[in-house]
Amino acid sequence: MKEIVIISGKGGTGKTSITAAFAYLAKGSVVLADCDVDASDLHLLLKPEIKRSENFYSSQVAVIDGVACTSCGACYDVCHFDAIIPGTPYKIDLISCEGCGYCEKVCPEKAITMKANLDGQWFISTTRLGSHLAHARLGIGAENSGKLVSVVKNVAKQLAQMLKLDTILIDGPPGISCPVISTLSGATFAVIVTEPTVSGLHDLKRVYEIARRFRVGTGVIINKADINKNNYNKIREFIDIQGIKHLADLPYDTTFTKAMTEGKTIIEYTPDNIISRTLANIWPQILRLTENTKKQ
């Protein structure tokens, strides 16, 4: 199974629009997975029809049985998160509770239990492009531990096996912490979308470091490549030194936004646009690179 991840480090670089364009080119030959579970947007372009939806439980919160509580304050004394509200009975501030379970262990009346927290939902959908999509929605204030990402990837993998497909195309989350690590773990190839801004190179280096650690092959797309010559050169220098494949430069262009506003991928919106043609050229190239990475 090949897993191709589109990732960026920094948010707002255009990774979802690029993922959608590749999804259009791949049609029904891939299974799609949206691992940006904190702010998933891919479904907005693919108009999925949800076929299955499941609740996702991961973290825990403390619950106090008001009848059994004697207001002794033992829980209040041990909580390091200011999550216990004194009173008759004591209560839990659900937003502050981290689910450590210390209070449960010290309550002399056994009035506290830990209960699973509904942390989100995950979905299996069909898309208008002919492919299936595994996606999810993390609950507000939930901890993005990477587990929901892992669930989405597993669902996508099972779908691929069922449909006898060998490629999963993944829209990755921003940042460099847990969810990104879960996304890159087990991946075959990562397409890093960056832009030549002061923060672009910095964030590219950090996300590349994680990809390298997981032995994931990497290529770079520089979006808005013409916006700053100096930073552009610095990015090129970095990827050359590291031996990262330079896949393409895309110009600063509002067409991505216009296409998105119409609910279309850029290739559907203007197939002759330079960006559309560039992306159509590099998709087969990425598939070939994925083959090579796999053989190593």
Partner: peptide
């Protein structure tokens, strides 16, 4: 166990 064999390698 003396030896582990896997695909991408364990995290840190």
């Amino acid at each position: 166990i003396n030896v582990v064999i896997t695909g991408n390698g364990p995290g840190g």
